[in-house]
Design a binder for these strands. Structure first.
Lengths: 101, 101
DNA sequence: TTATAATATATCATTTTTGATATAGACCGT
DNA sequence: ACGGTCTATATCAAAAATGATATATTATAA
């Protein structure tokens, strides 16, 4: 999302995660955000299922734990690229990932 | 792709688009790149089919033509996010996009 | 051929994402 | 309560993506 737009929304009491996230977004952007949320949730779900820590999964993807944690809280500020890469590293096929759309 | 890595490769005679693109990339990164290539090709294909110019399609996505042209030549330097958004704007459903993986 | 539109390439500024670090809080087991 | 691990949050630096502009090349129609 555009940073200026976000700042305006935040000044108006907007909080990341609200339904108001979608204010000012194009339908395409809103759709993309929903998908990102799905992917991020799936990553956490699979990680827990496997019983590995954020630290370990992050390391497997050349990331540090705090940066990994970020995609859980703020998936809208993460590119699909990293979500995709992490899901692949968890063993998901592109088809399986596509099913999350 | 990492910019330093690319610089090293280019210094060694590497050219964007080569099979050598994959040198030094993780399997996940290579897979992601292939998918991006598919998406970029599909965008151009659909654009031509519709008979609209790069300038117009770019404008519909709040882009300028030269930046649009970039994703055709260097999809590895474009996030999935923009490829995705453009495909949505062309009327593709997420499922349809997923089928390109 | 010339004019016009379309596409490609190059470059630099700007914005955004990502990396890195420090640190706080939560949640155990002992 | 203490020590350890895991997770969350904040912040700043670094890297990368994107925006914007100028201009070159190519294609096409008159």
């Amino acid at each position: 999302m555009n940073i200026e737009k976000r700042k305006r929304l935040e000044a108006a009491g907007w909080v990341s995660g609200d339904a108001a996230d979608f204010l000012g977004m194009s339908p395409e952007e809103a759709r993309l955000l929903k998908i990102k949320l799905n992917l991020a949730r799936e990553i956490e779900s699979q990680r827990k299922k496997k019983g590995i820590s954020q630290t370990v999964l992050a390391a497997q993807n050349d990331m540090k734990q705090p940066n990994f944690a970020r995609l859980k809280k703020n998936p809208e500020r993460v590119t699909m690229d990293v979500l995709f890469k992490i899901l692949l590293s968890l063993g998901n096929s592109p088809k399986r990932i596509a099913a999350l759309f």
